[in-house]
Amino acid sequence: MAKNKHHMKIAMVSVFVADPDKAFKYYTEVLSFEEVMYSHESHIAIVKSTLEPKGINLLLEPTESGGIEVAKTYKKTLYGMGMPVITFSTTDIQKTVDELKTKGVVFKKEPVKTGYGFEAVFDDANGNFIQLIQLN
C-alpha cells in the first residue's frame, strides 16, 4: 500500500441538490445531521454527522438558482438510473430504517443482506438516492 506523502485527507464532499434550503432542512431535521455552515442568501449549506464531530463535511451543492447546468444533468441521469450518489453507514440498519420511515423517508430498496453486510436505498426528497449500509 502506498503511503500518503502529502498528508491529505478528505475534508468535504458535495451532493448536488435542487434546493439547498430544502435539502438543509431535510438533512438536519430528518437525517439528524448538524449544521456546519448555512447561508440562505449565498445558497451554501454544509452539514456533518453528529457521530463524527471531526469527520467529513457534506456540501449540499445547488443545481438550481444559478447552479452548474452539467451538474443538473448528471444528478437527473443518476436518479433516473436509480443510482445512489453517496453512501452513509449505520451500526443497526433495521433500526435506522425504521426511525427514518417514522420521519417520512421513502425507501427505494428495503434492507437486504449482501456479501459485506446489509444495504438499503432511500430518496433524499431532493432528487438523489442515498445508499445506507451496515458492514459485517
Rank of each mutant, 00 (worst) to 15 (best):
residue 4 N to G: 10
residue 90 T to M: 08
residue 118 F to M: 07
residue 61 E to D: 05
residue 33 F to G: 10
residue 27 Y to H: 06
residue 39 S to H: 09
residue 62 P to V: 09
residue 33 F to Q: 02
residue 103 K to H: 15
residue 43 H to I: 04
residue 63 T to M: 06
residue 17 V to K: 13
residue 37 M to F: 13
residue 57 N to F: 12
residue 92 D to L: 06
residue 133 I to M: 11
residue 71 A to R: 11
residue 22 K to P: 08
residue 60 L to E: 04
residue 70 V to T: 13
residue 132 L to Q: 10
residue 120 A to E: 03
residue 93 I to H: 09
residue 88 F to N: 14
residue 76 K to L: 14
residue 21 D to E: 11
residue 86 I to L: 15
residue 78 L to W: 07
residue 76 K to N: 11
residue 108 K to Y: 14
residue 59 L to G: 03
residue 31 L to H: 01
residue 119 E to P: 01
residue 64 E to N: 07
residue 1 M to Y: 02
residue 68 I to E: 15
residue 44 I to T: 06
residue 20 P to H: 03
residue 111 P to M: 01
residue 16 F to V: 03
residue 10 I to E: 13
residue 73 T to Y: 15
residue 27 Y to S: 05
residue 66 G to F: 12
residue 125 A to M: 09
residue 47 V to S: 09
residue 101 K to W: 13
residue 71 A to I: 11
residue 78 L to T: 06
residue 31 L to W: 01
residue 69 E to R: 04
residue 104 G to Y: 12
residue 116 Y to A: 05
residue 97 V to L: 05
residue 96 T to P: 05
residue 18 A to L: 02
residue 109 K to T: 11
residue 55 G to W: 01
residue 52 E to W: 06
residue 134 Q to W: 03
residue 120 A to H: 10
residue 43 H to F: 10
residue 17 V to S: 10
residue 20 P to W: 09
residue 5 K to T: 07
residue 27 Y to V: 00
residue 7 H to D: 06
residue 7 H to G: 07
residue 110 E to G: 00
residue 133 I to K: 13
residue 71 A to W: 13
residue 51 L to H: 15
residue 95 K to Y: 08
residue 65 S to T: 02
residue 120 A to L: 10
residue 28 T to F: 09
residue 44 I to N: 03
residue 129 F to E: 08
residue 89 S to G: 13
residue 26 Y to W: 14
residue 8 M to A: 13
residue 57 N to R: 14
residue 40 H to Y: 05
residue 19 D to T: 01
residue 25 K to Q: 15
residue 75 K to D: 08
residue 29 E to L: 10
residue 120 A to D: 07
residue 27 Y to T: 02
residue 79 Y to H: 13
residue 31 L to N: 01
residue 80 G to Y: 15
residue 94 Q to R: 13
residue 15 V to Y: 06
residue 102 T to V: 04
residue 2 A to D: 14
residue 26 Y to M: 09
residue 107 F to T: 00
residue 128 N to P: 09
residue 135 L to Q: 07
residue 17 V to E: 01
residue 35 E to W: 01
residue 103 K to I: 10
residue 112 V to H: 01
residue 135 L to W: 09
residue 134 Q to A: 00
residue 33 F to W: 13
residue 41 E to A: 05
residue 17 V to P: 07
residue 94 Q to F: 15
residue 128 N to Q: 05
residue 70 V to P: 09
residue 72 K to W: 04
residue 130 I to T: 06
residue 68 I to F: 15
residue 14 S to W: 02
residue 95 K to G: 00
residue 112 V to P: 05
residue 69 E to L: 06
residue 23 A to T: 12
residue 29 E to A: 00
residue 129 F to C: 06
residue 113 K to G: 00
